[in-house]
């Protein structure tokens, strides 16, 4: 499951939990797409404390979405990922 909400004028929170599937990514595109068209700077927080997994088709769809908006991601000046997984830190680094 995936939920997107604004927690401030310039901060968007994405919460991942359980297994993220292709439909979740469609929802992410719908919710986050318009925010990527804004003027920055904005902050993005990804909460993944209860995230278990992502399906292969969802992973591919998410990558396509990221690449399609590549020029717009810089609207987010800061991105925080909340997770106890050390692997997430390594990926960010």
């Amino acid at each position: 499951m995936l939920r997107v909400r604004e927690i401030g004028a310039d901060v968007v929170e994405v919460t991942l939990s359980g297994v993220v599937d292709r439909a979740d990514i469609a929802g992410l595109e719908q919710a986050l797409g318009p925010k990527l068209e804004r003027e920055g700077p904005m902050g993005l927080i990804v909460r993944a404390e209860d995230w278990a997994d992502i399906t292969a088709d969802a992973l591919a769809a998410e990558a396509r979405f990221e690449l399609s908006k590549l020029a717009r991601w810089s609207v987010f000046a800061r991105m925080a990922v909340v997770s106890d997984l050390q692997a997430i830190g390594a990926i960010l680094a």
């Binding site: 800061r78 991105m79 990922v81």
Partner: peptide
């Protein structure tokens, strides 16, 4: 984009950090 990982116990700190733009 500046990126950081926070432990679950630091969730409020993460929110403060991304809000400090």
């Amino acid at each position: 984009i500046e990126m950081r990982r926070f432990d679950a116990a630091q969730a409020s700190e993460a929110e403060a950090w991304v809000s400090d733009l």
